[in-house]
């Protein structure tokens, strides 16, 4: 059989086998990834979406560090029940400053994409330190150490913002220069709450919020 004859060539030659695997497996990725990476609409900010401030960025990195995305998604699907439960569905343009994306894959706890503004700062503070004090029956862990650590110790904010600017986030020199001062006297929990409170507020305009 012809096909088998061709395959004999491949299975008797190490180089051909390596090349064959690489070539065949690369096709799918190229067809999917290249158009997506070229699509401008996925890189265009929606509504009031803006880069994270020094405090919010610090909070976001704490959110990543504590693995919040393991149990909380940040992605509201365009379904009646989800829009009703969480708010307007998520648009690609709201995530253009998200490096990495934090959409998550599991909802052990509720979605957090539109959590911003839903609760007071004080509620969040109590909830993060003792979740069951405000949500009886919750299985969320407590994060007591967030109230003990200085926000400025959670990574070099100037280096972070400079790095993000190299990736295209429009931070001004003044914003970067003033970043450290912004974090002064703040605890990690303050930064995290600032991040939570701005989550999902970038839509603005026509769709409410």
């Amino acid at each position: 059989m012809n096909g088998m004859w061709l395959h004999r060539k491949i299975e008797e030659n190490t180089g051909l086998l390596i090349f064959g695997i690489l070539f065949v497996s690369a096709i799918g990725g190229l067809v999917q990834l290249l158009p997506i990476l070229e699509q401008d609409s996925l890189e265009t900010a929606a509504g009031n979406t803006r880069p994270y401030s020094a405090i919010e960025l610090t909070g976001r990195d704490i959110y990543i560090r504590e693995g919040c995305s393991v149990c909380h998604s940040q992605q509201i699907r365009p379904l009646i029940a989800e829009v009703e439960r969480y708010g307007p569905y998520s648009r690609a343009g709201e995530f253009v400053y998200d490096r990495p994306f934090l959409w998550g894959s599991k909802r052990t706890g509720p979605d957090l994409h539109r959590i911003g503004g839903k609760y007071t700062d004080d509620w969040h503070r109590i909830h993060l330190l003792d979740p069951r004090a405000v949500v009886p029956g919750s299985i969320m862990p407590a994060y007591p150490w967030l109230a003990r650590r200085e926000a400025s110790a959670a990574g070099d904010i100037t280096a972070k913002m400079r790095g993000l600017r190299r990736l295209g986030h429009p931070y001004t020199d003044a914003e970067i220069a003033g970043a450290e001062a912004e974090l002064e006297d703040l605890l990690e929990i303050d930064a995290l709450i600032a991040y939570l409170q701005m989550l999902g507020t970038g839509l603005g305009g026509e769709d409410g919020q």
Binding site: Q32, L33, I36, L37, Q39, L42, E43, D61, A92, E94, F95, V96, Y97, D98, R99, P100, F101, W103, G155, D156, A159, K160, R162, G163, L164, L167
Partner: peptide, 18 residues
Amino acid sequence: VSPTQSYSLFAGAQDAIV
């Protein structure tokens, strides 16, 4: 951006697909 932290070259939806 530091020995213990980096930011993805891709952002948002593109990062999700990658």
